[in-house]
Amino acid sequence: MSDTTTALKPRAKVATERPKLWKVILLNDDFTPREFVVGVLMGVFRMTESEALGVMLTAHRRGACVVAVFTKEVAEEKCAQGNEAGRQAGYPLAFTTEREE
């Protein structure tokens, strides 16, 4: 046999980074009925009625409320679905996204 030895290089560990998260924010307006907002929150964000009512009331009192936190693509899709539901019903219902710090 041969007297040569083979030294293996250590493999660099690849650290997978968690995806950046984005907040979906409900903006308050004075025209969209509360019941409609609760219905959208239940349908799009899969909230219970009491959770949706709490989010809606927080947005009503403070002007805005974080609805949920998702990856960027999911947050943008949920935001678009909520805005489209309001637009189709003729209400100025508005959701927006913001990167979580």
Rank of each mutant, 00 (worst) to 15 (best):
V14L: 10
V38N: 06
V24C: 11
G39C: 14
D29F: 05
R34I: 01
W22A: 04
V40A: 15
V14M: 12
L26I: 09
T32G: 08
P33V: 05
E35T: 02
A12E: 13
T32P: 00
K20G: 00
A15M: 14
F45W: 09
D29C: 05
L27H: 13
P19S: 03
P33Q: 05
P33M: 11
F45M: 12
V44M: 07
N28F: 04
D29P: 02
L41E: 10
V24T: 09
F31P: 00
D30W: 04
T16F: 15
F45A: 05
G39Y: 03
G43A: 10
W22K: 00
L41P: 02
V38H: 00
G39M: 12
V24I: 10
N28P: 00
L21S: 14
N28V: 03
K20P: 00
F45P: 05
A12W: 07
F36R: 03
D29H: 06
V14A: 15
V38I: 15
V14S: 14
L41V: 05
R34G: 08
K23Q: 12
W22R: 00
L26Y: 08
N28K: 09
G39S: 07
T16N: 10
K20E: 13
F45I: 09
M42L: 04
K20V: 11
E17T: 09
